[in-house]
Computed example of a mutant assay.
Amino acid sequence: MLKIIDKWKIWFSLSLIVIIIGIGCMIYRGGLNFGIDFKGGTQVIFDLGNGFNKAQADKIVNEYVNDATTNTVNSNEYEIKSANLTSEQVNEIFNKFKTEFKVGDKALISQNQIGASIGKELTDNAIIALCIAFICMLIYIAIRFEFKFGLAALIALFHDILITVSVYAIFNITVNSPFIAAILTVVGYSMNDSIVIFDRIRENMKFIKRTSPREVANKSVNQTMARSINTTSTTLVTIIAVYIFVPSVRDFAFPLIVGIAAGAYSSIFIASPVWVMLKDRSLKKGKRKKEVVVEELP
């Protein structure tokens, strides 16, 4: 049997290294690389025809703007988002597209200005949604299991969010609105993974009495590890395939890949050790109280 809980310092250190590097990158760069959904900017969509060469289109765009993010939509539409794209630059890019891709004047489908206030409203609503979700999950787990399980699960969720944000900070990936949706999805998925392990711990505690929380947790994690890894692997294969073959949803798929992988890691290597620490601390307090009561008895 693998002694997962006994090596908690290793698991915590691995996560801390990633998070600290991510925080360092954010401090060095002055924050995350927010896209126009948060900072505001210009969104332009062109119809360049089926099977157009995206790399060639990207090369043309990069001649005019350095901060642009581009996507392929429905195999024929090409989307550009940039905080510094002017109308003159759009016209120059469009003229180049006409020459390179042999498109007409109607190839420019839309050109929109996105205000930063939309991103702020989206962020505020996402934070409120996360807080409500955390409170509801904590109440549910406290009633269904016990409060310590809920607290350990929430710590694991914060870990998953921090890891995902850190990866974006380390690689300077643009953060747009799909990132928020992906984070909310990861929270639900990670919680489900942790509950499976906690449910096994609760069942084992009924049948394995006079055993330390550490031993119960080790046995439970070993019993559910194969299930967690298989489920996560199946999910990741599907999302990676979507990321590769459906470019239009990559902004949503990539944080899902990072978050779900982090969730599988945290449910095994973070949530369970945290629960053991909380349980051991509670048992020690209980013993101290009993010792005090015994000493006070005449």
Rank of each mutant, 00 (worst) to 15 (best):
F149S: 11
L151W: 08
D105K: 14
T235Y: 04
I132T: 14
K148I: 07
S177F: 05
K219C: 00
T211N: 06
F97Y: 13
T235D: 01
D193V: 12
L162C: 09
N204V: 07
I163F: 02
A182K: 14
V175Q: 03
C131P: 03
I118V: 15
Q223M: 12
H159D: 03
K102M: 05
K219V: 00
F149W: 11
T99W: 04
F97A: 03
R202V: 11
I163Q: 03
F207E: 14
N230W: 09
Y168E: 02
S194E: 07
P213H: 10
A156N: 00
R214L: 06
A153P: 08
A126M: 13
F207K: 14
E203W: 05
L154D: 13
K102H: 10
A226Y: 07
A107Q: 11
A169N: 09
I170R: 05
I229R: 07
D124H: 14
I114N: 04
I197C: 05
N95E: 10
A152E: 09
S166G: 02
D160K: 08
A126N: 12
I201D: 04
F145T: 04
N172P: 06
I155Y: 03
A169I: 07
D105G: 04
A226E: 07
L162W: 13
I128L: 08
Y140D: 05
I208A: 13
G104W: 09
T99E: 14
L154Q: 14
I163P: 01
A182M: 13
L154Y: 09
F207G: 00
A107N: 14
I135D: 04
P178R: 09
T185V: 13
F207L: 06
P178D: 04
A182V: 10
I139P: 02
G150I: 06
I195W: 07
Q113Y: 15
T211G: 00
L162K: 11
N125P: 02
Q113F: 13
I173H: 12
F97C: 05
A182C: 11
N230H: 11
T232C: 13
G188K: 12
M225R: 06
L154I: 15
A107E: 10
I143N: 03
M191Q: 03
V165R: 00
N218G: 06
K120N: 08
M191L: 10
Y140E: 07
V196T: 04
I132M: 15
I180V: 12
D105N: 13
A156G: 00
V165N: 01
G119F: 02
T123S: 08
T185A: 15
I155R: 04
A181L: 08
I173F: 13
I163L: 03
A152Y: 10
A153C: 05
A142N: 07
S190F: 01
K209Y: 02
R202P: 11
V221K: 08
D105T: 11
Y189K: 12
Y168S: 01
G119S: 02
V165T: 05
S177P: 01
R144Q: 12
F149Q: 08
T123Y: 13
